[in-house]
Design a protein around this nucleic acid. Structure first.
Lengths: 99, 99
DNA sequence: TCTATATTTCTAGTTTTATCGAAATATAAG
DNA sequence: CTTATATTTCGATAAAACTAGAAATATAGA
C-alpha cells in the first residue's frame, strides 16, 4: 500500500466521531447499516454524519450502496486489514545487527 | 484501548509527513534516530519536524530521550501494535447469525 | 400527482492544522 | 566564558476540518 493511501486512511480514522462510526460498522458485520441506523446509534446529526460518511468512503474505509431510498453502509474489511498491516510492515528493516 | 486514545493515534498517523517520519522510525528499530537523522532522511525543515515529533509524542506513537545535546526518537512498538489490533478488534460483534 | 421518508448539499461560523523562518534554549567542548 | 551544535519555541499566515441548521434531492407509496 502507498504511503499516501495509508495516510488518507488513518486520517479518516483520526476523528473521534468518524472512528465511532467506523467501529459501529465494523461491529455490524457484512449486513451493514443504514445511515439512519448509524444516526440512531451515534446521535450524530444527519448533515454531520453525511459529511463523515463521505470522508470515510473516499478513504475507502467503507462502501455505500443505495437500496431504494436508503443507503447501506459497510466496513471495507480488506482495506482495514491492509491498513492494520501497514503500521508495522517495515519494522526494523534498517536495523543493524550487532554482537 | 479507549476510542479517544485510538483516534488520537490515528490522527497522528494521518498526515503524510508524519506517517513518513513514523515509518522511518519503525524501520530504524530499537536504536532509534536523532532528530537530525530524521531531518536528513525526510528533508522536513527543523521547526516543522519538531512540531510533528511533538504531535507523535503526545499521541504516544514515539518516545523521545535526551542524550547530551541530541534527542533520540524511537517508535513505540507496543502502542503501534495495539492500534493495529484496535481496527478490527470488535469485528462483527453485532452480526446476527442466520440460516 | 401528492405526501412522507431518507439522505445529501449548501452555507457559514468556529476551531484546528500545516508550514517554516527567525529567535531562543540546552548542552558540549575548548 | 565563548563558541559551536542540536533542537525547540515563537509568531504569523494559509489551508483544511468540524459542526450543524436549513434547503434540496431522491425515491417509495397512496
Amino acid at each position: 500500500m502507498e504511503l499516501v493511501t495509508a495516510a488518507q486512511g488513518f486520517s479518516a480514522m483520526g476523528s473521534e466521531s468518524r472512528l465511532e462510526v467506523l467501529q459501529t460498522l465494523v461491529r455490524a458485520g457484512d449486513k451493514g447499516l443504514l445511515v439512519g441506523d448509524i444516526q440512531q446509534r451515534t446521535g450524530i446529526p444527519g448533515s454531520t454524519l453525511a459529511h463523515h460518511l463521505k470522508f470515510l468512503t473516499s478513504a475507502d474505509l467503507i462502501v455505500q450502496n443505495r437500496q431504494g431510498r436508503t443507503i447501506i453502509n459497510k466496513a471495507n474489511y480488506q482495506h482495514l486489514q491492509a491498513l492494520a498491516a501497514f503500521i508495522l510492515e517495515e519494522c526494523c528493516a534498517d536495523q543493524e545487527i550487532e554482537k
